[in-house]
């Protein structure tokens, strides 16, 4: 569903991505780990056509993102670290707006249904989102993804700064989406969450994918060890 082929991107001389190859299939939750500046956010931005690649391609559902940005975006949903919404609109209004931008419109009841599925308490849906906590905003972001019936989700540290309960609820929802066949790419620093929810795990360093693991095959302790080894030295087995 999501495919990067020799993807390159540099900012003013420094290479942020040095030929990334990766694939995320439907039903996968691919967790990208890596230090700040490893190229995780750049990868996500390239899939969204927020930036143009300097080489290689990013493809969504077999379509080149750079060539058909609007077509590919129909398939995508995006949840950043901070889901930003229009503060003086209600959650319902925000959801309706974004959903219509995605080309779908529903009844008021259905919108409430999406919000409920995303875990937002019923009473909050009609309130202006100015007053929302971070966790509530992330839920609205998920509801947007649900309503869009996205084939692929791009998540950029979606659980950073959430309390453990909210974080857990979020993961539950991801698993449901995975079960529905969505391809999910999630950049995160949370090794525990990656191991728990991810199906596959990629470790990035300085613009390269240095390791790929299957989440079922490693224990939590191993994952941490492997990750730290990569960070400290320069290779898994160095």
């Amino acid at each position: 569903m999501l495919q990067a082929t020799k993807l390159k991107k540099s900012y003013g001389g420094t290479e942020a991505l040095k030929g990334l190859d990766m694939t995320v299939e439907g039903g996968d939750i691919y967790c990208l780990l890596g230090a700040n500046g490893a190229g995780k956010t750049t990868t996500i931005s390239l899939f969204l056509n927020f930036i143009r690649p300097d080489g290689g391609t990013a493809a969504v559902g077999g379509l080149d993102v750079a060539e058909q940005p609007l077509e590919t975006k129909k398939l995508l949903a995006y949840i950043p670290e901070q889901v930003m919404l229009y503060g003086n609109l209600t959650a319902l209004e925000n959801l309706r707006y974004f959903s219509r931008l995605g080309g779908r419109d529903y009844s008021q009841g259905e919108y409430r249904g999406f919000l409920r599925r995303a875990g937002l308490q019923d009473g909050a849906a009609g309130r202006r989102v100015k007053t929302y906590s971070k966790g509530m905003r992330q839920k609205v972001g998920l509801a947007v993804a649900l309503a869009k019936q996205a084939k692929a989700l791009l998540l950029d540290e979606p659980t950073a700064g959430l309390d453990p309960k909210a974080s857990n609820e979020f993961s539950e929802l991801l698993l449901k989406l995975k079960a529905d066949g969505a391809a999910i790419l999630m950049a995160t620093h949370d090794l525990f969450r990656a191991k728990e929810t991810g199906t596959r795990i990629g470790i990035m360093k300085e613009g390269r994918l240095v390791d790929e693991l299957s989440a079922g095959e490693v224990s939590h302790a191993d994952l941490e060890k492997i990750y730290l080894q990569h960070m400290h030295v320069g290779g898994r087995y160095a």
Partner: peptide, 14 residues
């Protein structure tokens, strides 16, 4: 600055 631009542009709109 609010961050909504990325939210909007994640949808099929130029």
């Amino acid at each position: 600055e609010r961050g909504t631009l990325a939210m909007v542009l994640a949808h099929p709109i130029s």
